[in-house]
Design a binder for these strands. Sequence first.
DNA 1: ATCCAGGGAGAAG
DNA 2: CTTCTCCATGGA
Length: 281
Amino acid sequence: MQKLKIINEYFNIEDTLTCGQVFRFKPYKDGYLIISADKACYAKQVDNGVELEFNDNDRDYFYNYFDLDRDYSSIFNHANSDSVEVVKTSARLGKGIRILNQDKVEMVFSFIVSQNNNIPRIKGILEKLCLALGEKKTFLDTEYYTFPTVEKMAKMNVEFYKSIGLGYRAEYIYNLAVSDTFSKDFQSFNNLSTKELIDNLLKIKGVGRKVADCISLFGFHREDCFPVDTWIEKVYREDFKGELTDRNKITEFFISRYGKNSGYIQQYLFYYKRSLEKLKK
DNA sequence: ATCCAGGGAGAAG
DNA sequence: CTTCTCCATGGA
């Protein structure tokens, strides 16, 4: 076991986990237990930073996972000097958000589950999926389940996927599991341009532009992506006073505006808009 | 009861 | 090319 303390004003563990980019984490002893692919990590906020704890062999994985090599100051400053008020406000609220480098395969399945769905339900479905098909492991005296292998998922049938609450998405998940999407050159997607990457992801049934953008951003760390969902559409309409209705065009609007910082600023805005809604109750 | 959630596929225009 | 309809599920 190994501990690592990160002192960085641009790293808040709660904001990073609850901003909507990751689904498999839960409160644990003054902090959080985070599960990614087959690995687990404990993280807790301390006065001036974040304390991480993981297995010795997972040091590089989680160092990269939390994007710790990146300097977030210029990203934050870009947002915090924008002419639109909501961008500045959201950046200050989400100053501690980092874009995680999550497992690519897990991101593809997870964001197919996310379509026309809400975050609590997405978390519940993924939890059931891992409980049923993942491998049981122990970390810090607590049990967790790995994300299932594609091979294991391919052995199930559509009825199983419906039984864990996937609804009409069950067929997308099943068809993807039995496809050859991940067996051939999926890892070489790394070498593609962002546009080529998105075009390839769009070939998967159940993956549209928004889901492809999320996979590209959260799995491949493509910063020049700006996923547009119902919340971002609300920001666009209410705070930017935008007139466009086509989500593709709204995406292009934001990318041409924010360039390489699109993904980060999108996360600031998404987190902010959703936080407001939670506050109402 | 109706609407909504990190939308997308397929059909119709 | 664009727009419309339907798609399961559960919480508000």
